[in-house]
Amino acid sequence: MLIKEFMPIVKQFYSGGAHCIYDHAVSPEPAGHAQTGLYKVYEDDNSPSFLVDQSWDMDRNNYAHYTDHYRHEGSTVYRILGDSSFKKRCSLYYEVLYVDDNWIHSRYYGVIAKLDGQWRLYIGDSHMFVLDNVDFKTAEEAKEYYDTCIKNDPFIQGIIEDFDKDMK
């Protein structure tokens, strides 16, 4: 999923709370949220590098600011979607897809969600699929379907492999 596709989701489904999420390319500086944690996502001028910046209240933690660098735009989006504090405040039901390497962290590469009445699968930076002839009550069910019926499709595997090898 690209940042431009992610921002409308933030606008529609995210209730804010602890974080103000904005697209750096659209509004370089957030107004009036200096005391709250915030993310910004943007493409670095020395592309291809994509960043997620997070700032916190000065006294709240032992750090005030940190940045995650990614080689893929999709990674920045999945990084935020995969954050439990984002998920808690988001009224959209979704499941983030990841490669689990049994190491320190899982590597996110996609998301499955119901948007505009369709179950959609986003993987990598730019691929979006509409799932056909299926409906699910929950995002967990959708993920189960993904795991059993979609994940091993060679076309899908190719996209995941290309995307994931950059994150190792």
Binding site: L2, L121, D125, S126, H127, M128, F129, V130, L131, D132, N133, V134, C149, I150, D153
Partner: peptide, 14 residues
Amino acid sequence: EPGSSWYSFHTCHF
């Protein structure tokens, strides 16, 4: 075509 695959629509950005 519906039924030919698990998806009916796929899009990609460049």
